[in-house]
């Protein structure tokens, strides 16, 4: 029986070690040229539908499913969401604060005022931030449909 538990412990330790080493997610990055996040946010129509590579610090990670991250823009106060298909890529929370290269397809979403209020209210509640629905208006959300990422630091 002691061999059985030793085997189980070894398995768990192996899994933990494997997770600690993960630096590449999904298909990784294949494009060499990096497009600044601010450039995409300024001219999204120029990039919509295109596969691009961005770089930046990961500001936030979806804590429940690891299905999105926010990457900081090169311009202060801005960020861009990278959304991946649930389960296809799973970002661990430990990568928040890390510098990463991310590849994905630029997408523009038209979001109604009601949808935006619900989304921002949920985020504000989760992050303990004040939220004023009266400041919200319908808007376009520019994001990447993520295909892969690579930690750079």
């Amino acid at each position: 029986m002691k061999y059985f538990f030793a085997f189980l412990t070894t398995c768990l330790l192996t899994i933990t070690a494997a997770q600690a080493e993960q630096r590449t997610f999904g298909a990784g990055v294949t494009i060499n040229e990096t497009i600044a996040v601010s450039t995409i946010l300024d001219k999204p129509e120029q990039y919509v539908g295109q596969q691009v590579r961005i770089e930046g610090i990961i500001l936030d990670v979806c804590s429940k499913r690891g299905c999105w991250i926010y990457v900081a823009s090169d311009r202060q106060g801005e960020k861009i969401q990278v959304k991946v298909t649930d389960g296809e890529i799973v970002f661990p929370m430990a990568i928040a604060g890390r510098l990463a290269a991310v590849e994905g397809i630029v997408e523009i979403l038209d979001i109604s005022k009601e949808q935006m209020i619900a989304y921002l209210q949920h985020i504000a509640e989760e992050k303990g931030q004040p939220f004023d629905p009266s400041t919200v208006k319908a808007e376009r959300m520019i994001r990447l449909v993520g295909l892969g990422a690579q930690l750079l630091d």
Binding site: I57, Q76, G97
Partner: peptide
């Protein structure tokens, strides 16, 4: 400490292991 990032004039993010501080 993992990283720090100035989001805007009034917001700083500090990333330490297992704790994201705004």
């Amino acid at each position: 400490l993992k990283n720090i990032f100035r989001v805007d004039a009034n917001t700083l993010k500090i990333f330490v292991k297992n704790n994201n501080i705004t």
